[in-house]
């Protein structure tokens, strides 16, 4: 066994290399499914927005398929959807234009994988986004989480003139600290 390499902080000066134009737009006009805006803030222990964080998301397409060979339905995945997005927070928060993913069996509800990096974080934190318009307790992992805390994983659906918006904040610390996973 080779010992794994240790993580180091992304630092404050990554945007010019990692945050590319369009990197937070996962869809084009042909992408199947409900197009949504997913937005929120990364907040520190004082409740202040973190403006030098990097947020990455990974998700299935609207049918619950991944464009990745580990998915048995790989060949059927939406060719207009890669499923990966990256956003900085320099403007006060992060946002992604994406589709609402389909549920991935055996879970009957959809979710998105999230990773956050920031100055002041020597290693990333991993979380998940569930959606407020589903009964997430049907998901075995969600159901197993502390009921007092698992609401931190739920994005709130809002209908706006511009379309469907899901709002989800990442609280790194504090009374409503987001649930982070060991990954």
């Amino acid at each position: 066994m080779r010992p794994q390499s240790p993580s180091q902080t992304v630092g404050p000066f990554f945007a010019f290399a990692l945050v590319r134009e369009g990197g937070n737009v996962l869809v084009d006009e042909k992408t199947q499914g409900e197009h949504i805006l997913l937005r929120g803030q990364v907040l520190d222990g004082d409740g202040q927005p973190v403006d030098d964080a990097l947020v990455e998301i990974w998700q299935a397409d609207a049918q619950g398929r991944f464009r990745h060979p580990a998915d048995p339905n790989y060949a059927l995945a939406d060719p207009h959807f890669r499923g990966f997005g990256r956003s900085g927070t320099a403007s006060g928060g992060f946002w992604f234009r994406t589709v609402k993913p389909g549920p991935v069996p055996p879970s009957p509800v959809p979710c998105i994988a999230v990773r956050v990096f920031a100055r002041g974080m020597l290693i990333h934190a991993v979380s998940r986004i569930y959606f407020s318009d589903h009964d997430n307790t049907q998901d075995p992992l969600f159901a197993s989480l502390d009921p007092e805390r698992r609401q931190t994983l739920v994005a709130e659906r809002q209908l706006t003139p511009a379309g469907v918006v899901y709002r989800w904040d990442i609280r790194l610390q504090g009374p409503r600290e987001t649930i982070f996973f060991d990954l």
């Binding site: 520190d44 222990g45 998700q59 990745h68 060979p69 580990a70 499923g83 879970s107 805390r149 982070f180």
Partner: peptide, 24 residues
């Protein structure tokens, strides 16, 4: 790190297809 470090212990994550796939 002082105001950005999560305080709760990390929660174990059973491996699912979501985390076993990624961008190619």
């Amino acid at each position: 790190t002082v105001r950005r470090a999560p305080h709760h212990p990390l929660v174990p994550l059973p491996a699912s297809l979501l985390e076993r796939t990624g961008p190619v």
